[in-house]
Design a protein around this nucleic acid. Structure first.
Lengths: 248, 248
DNA sequence: TAAAAAACCGCAAATTGTTGCATAATTTCC
DNA sequence: GGAAATTATGCAACAATTTGCGGTTTTTTA
């Protein structure tokens, strides 16, 4: 069997099954695993497949979430960085959805080993890209606008979790009304998340400070940490600091 | 044997077998390998064949080899269309992941009103784009390679569902071993899905027919409908038809 | 953290390619 | 028809590619 022929066969197998093992290929084509590895390397170099330990994956399979245009990405990245710094090895983390959370997911250090619970489809997708993170999706009916699981099933599942940290992206927050939102179902879920975690971390860009919406999620006193892109000493944050919130 | 004659013979062999070895040609025409090589070079220069180390390949073979991005999209779309046609208003549908399933999600008619249960993050994402579909995500630990929820929690949730149809994308299938896969956890989930639905619909491109992998999902007799891009009367499908599977 | 699996590295053997050249076959032109 | 020129073929020495193997390092997994 010619080299190209062999590589074509490998490509076919990868496309067909989305993944192949070097050992399987080796026995089915009857060449040494070294040869297979070399083929896999060549195919990977030309970008035809993705090589992984023990075999290879199809390229087209994963990645179809393209990062759309996100509002205020830079600010959100600053926020996300501060948030990511709070996560330590071995922690159980509960997170919602929202663009800030997604940014944080992308910024998690490669070697972080932690367990993430989430109700958000995009967040779960991002966490799943990470090599060392364990991802648990809390399923239920999916709210289309936000791609988040909502409903009694999800809430009761969340209540069974004892997480170290809960990261919340929010719609609106002000010192008087606390966190507010405009979707009943989502508020229920966020409520449950806050209760299920030892500490609640709110991540938001400063624009959302001092705005409010119709439905209350929780009061300021329920928030443990507030992260914005601002300097922690900024006056805008004073009212929260006075309510015992840690500002980062 | 004349030079032209020889080259014509080589061309025929190439188009016949998609590939030839210099050594084989040399012995079968009884000329030195040098001559063969020179012929091969000439044929390659005029673009009639693709010369590679040790022999040559047919042009068509090579175009297949170069086809990079998404494997067999057209076939998958044909499969997906046939599958989508089975879904009627008001149905409860249970689906896995896989590119064929994703294609089907994109082809669902705008006005379809149905409820979709799924364990696949990409599939849930696609369903959530649809205006009239209700999406329920069956959550649990996320298997990273396939972006699918696996584990006891997901399985027990699936068992509580009574779906009309279960759409399965597969890795390998043959009449003898039935559906086979290479990931234990995913097999467990697929098993539960098959049991939870009144009818099981398997969607696959024909290339996966008559291939098999290590772990068995179910036998042919557990499949109700098999959809491929082929004509339903195609002989390749006979063994399945004989086992009582409806072929579309 | 230790055992197992996989990847990597260098090397040697086998195969394949290339080049120059001698010889044989074919064509051309007188 | 026959000599010269052209082309084709085979041979041999050498270069390049491919492949498998042993030993070592890295990664994975329990």
């Amino acid at each position: 069997m010619l080299k190209k022929e062999r590589q074509a066969y490998i490509l076919r197998q990868v496309s067909l099954h989305n993944s192949v093992l070097s050992a399987d290929l080796s026995t089915s084509i009857n060449v040494s695993e070294d040869t297979i590895r070399r083929d896999l390397n060549e195919l990977a170099e030309t970008g035809k497949i993705i090589k992984v330990h023990g075999g290879a994956l199809s390229k087209s399979f994963n990645s179809f979430y393209l990062r759309g245009d996100v509002y205020n990405v830079d600010s959100k990245k600053m926020v996300a960085e501060k948030g990511a710094a709070l996560i330590k090895d071995g922690m159980f983390i509960l997170t919602g959805g929202g663009t800030t959370i997604i940014e944080m997911a992308r910024l998690l250090p490669e070697n972080l080993k932690a367990t993430f619970f989430t109700v958000s489809i995009p967040a779960a997708y991002e966490y799943a890209q990470h090599p060392n993170i364990e991802v648990i999706f809390i399923g239920d009916k999916i709210a289309k606008k936000s791609q988040i699981a909502v409903g009694g099933e999800a809430i009761s599942k969340i209540k069974h979790i004892k997480a170290d940290l809960c990261f919340l992206g929010i719609n609106a927050i002000d010192p008087e009304h606390g966190i507010t939102d405009n979707d009943w179902d989502i508020v229920q879920v966020k409520n449950a998340m806050i209760e299920a975690a030892a500490k609640t971390v709110v991540m938001t860009i400063s624009e959302k400070l001092n705005s409010s919406q119709r439905i209350r999620v929780c009061g300021v006193q329920d928030i443990d940490v507030l992260i914005t892109e601002l300097d922690p000493e900024n006056n805008l944050l004073d009212p929260f600091r006075l309510n015992g919130v840690t500002i980062l």
